[in-house]
């Protein structure tokens, strides 16, 4: 059993060298896998740019930033698409943020334990519903209801899109905000209650402000999901690339950037102007999601626990 610490070459068992080589190899492989995330982001950006940048040369900027999208006749104005995305996203935000926050506060602060155990998995079901199923529900049930209720020529409107996108954003907002509320130390609440605040005052003046950054992150990520959602909006917004000029646009059909790509990509010829413009829209979506996510992750306040992690 008596092996020295600094083994000579003849004493070092071949097996030990072999297992050390395996260790080094696997470490390298695992490291490469970790780095792959960076590679993928760069590759995605590269492939979008390599096709999309051509559009800037082929279509004059004045056309690109015009209000008319009608590719068959060479009108590539992307403003109505950006407007459509914004309209639907703002609508979804107005709908999802209050509901999502209220639900998160209820689950984290008010509901009894058993209720929490029931509510959370159900919210998770909503997160798992395929967007195409929500779109289907929108066509079959929501749009006809809206048409009758609001006396519209068609129910396939920005409003229908907003409601369903709101539903898609809600689980993200709830789960991130609930996590943030949950991680507020017990002692904060106890201190507020001890000086005579009601539970409600404690929630509004102590817990919610303390969880502010996490809650905002949840909202950002929820909104981010809404901007990028494709199938649902394509199915329920009526797909008319009309310039948003007033608030009443919410009751009319519209067309988002994502839906435009999904609806038209299948029919364009590779290398055509139309093809390049669709990739350019992809670049814009990529950049929007990049910005949203960088803001969201910058808001998350992370406590460093490195030393603690290793030595306790």
């Amino acid at each position: 059993m008596d092996t020295p610490f600094i083994p000579g070459p003849q004493q070092r068992k071949a097996q030990a060298i072999f297992s050390q080589a395996i260790e080094i190899l696997i470490t390298a492989v695992v490291k490469a896998m970790g780095y792959s995330a960076i590679v993928f982001v760069i590759m995605i950006f590269y492939f979008l740019m390599s096709e999309g940048i051509a559009a800037v040369g082929e279509v004059p900027l004045s056309v690109l930033f015009s209000a008319r999208w009608y590719p068959i006749e060479g009108y590539y104005g992307i403003l109505p698409l950006i407007g459509g995305s914004l309209l639907v996203t703002v609508g979804a935000t107005l709908f999802a943020v209050p509901i999502g926050l209220a639900t998160a506060i209820y689950i984290s602060e008010i509901a009894p334990r058993w209720m929490r155990e029931v509510l959370k998995p159900i919210i998770e079901i909503l997160a798992g519903l395929p967007s195409v199923v929500l779109g289907f529900i929108g066509i079959i049930a929501l749009a006809p209801q809206l048409r009758v209720l609001l006396d519209l020529p068609t129910g396939l409107t920005a409003l229908a899109g907003s409601i369903l996108l709101g539903l898609i954003a809600i689980p993200t907002i709830v789960s991130v905000a609930e996590d943030a509320l949950d991680s507020v130390p017990r002692s904060y609440r106890d201190a507020a209650l001890a000086i005579g605040a009601t539970r409600w005052q404690t929630i509004m003046r102590v817990t919610l402000p303390a969880a502010r950054s996490g809650v905002l992150t949840g909202v950002m990520l929820g909104v981010g999901r809404a901007i990028g959602e494709t199938m649902t909006v394509m199915m329920v917004t009526g797909n008319a690339p009309v310039m948003v000029r007033s608030l009443s646009a919410i009751l009319m059909p519209t067309r988002t950037m994502t839906a435009t790509i999904a609806a038209e990509m299948g029919e364009v010829a590779k290398g055509s102007v139309h093809y390049h413009v669709l990739f350019l829209i992809g670049v814009i979506l990529f950049l929007i999601s990049l910005i949203v996510n960088i803001i969201a992750s910058a808001m998350v306040f992370r406590v460093k626990k490195r030393a603690e992690r290793i030595l306790s």
């Binding site: 901007i227 990028g228 979506l285």
Partner: peptide, 10 residues
């Protein structure tokens, strides 16, 4: 965060 349709393009 990248929209699913952008993955499709990629």
């Amino acid at each position: 965060g990248i929209p699913s349709v952008v993955y499709g393009l990629f």
